[in-house]
Amino acid sequence: MINILTEMFSYAFLVRAVVVGLLVSLCAALLGVSLVLKRYSMIGDGLSHVGFGTLAVATAMNVAPLIVSIPVCVAAAFLLLRISENSKIRGDAAIALISTSSLAIGVVVISMTTGMNTDVCNYLFGSILSMRHSDVQLSVALSIVVLTMFALLYNKVFAVTFDENFAKATGIKTGIYNMLIAFLTAITIVLGMRMMGALLISSLIIFPSLTSMRVCKKFKTVTICSSVISVVCFFIGVTGSYVYATPTGASVVMINIAAFLLFWAWSFIKMKLKGFSGVRNFDMEKRN
């Protein structure tokens, strides 16, 4: 085991990938709790498709991908947020429209420039070799920004997620916090996309929080638990992909699926064990 790890970390590109990957999975897990609870999981999925389009365009124009992707994805995030908040337009249909459009634009641009080759596959399913030196520095800096902002906004994120109307009524500017969450999500997705792949990055947002919600009962424990799950799953996934020579993104998702099933089984067994006494307690409380 130790031998594998030392061998793995003797490759500089793998060290870079693991550092960025761990930071991105931490950010994604934190933001995911709020997005999943607000029923905004599809925004993450829509954003990753927009990211694919911008990545293709950036490669065609021969500029650094992050410089094009970040502003476009942030703009798309605000747009998707507005669409989801406005019940008059069908939110889910509009998100599907935007994500398929950007996917189509991306594919057309790629086929016109480099042709449909392994690049497309790398964009869609991720590649561990995609991390350059300058990317790593920017990714680390942006991840730290996301983590700091999340820590400072933690209580506001809770209030806005749990009950937006109450927050608004007591004078909290909920619009700004929703936009900040969308902004941070867009950055996280762009950072993680090339390693995890445009089709798989939203799993980093959705899986850890759903997994931890099987077992945890408090917002704070859900948040902490999902960040731990996310980081651990990523690390096991990367190591697994190194050992068995499987694609990184897909391997990480496989580990996340396993964790989800494990936690689900745990909560199921716990419920069965507590079932009888739980019903009695509930009746007693009702009478009080």
């Binding site: 609870l37 009950d163 927050a167 007591t170 004078g171 408090k218 917002f219």
Partner: peptide, 17 residues
Amino acid sequence: FPASAYEVTLSGRLSRR
């Protein structure tokens, strides 16, 4: 929603912060 009664109650103080 996974939140404890205490977390929900405390969030009422947020507007004063």
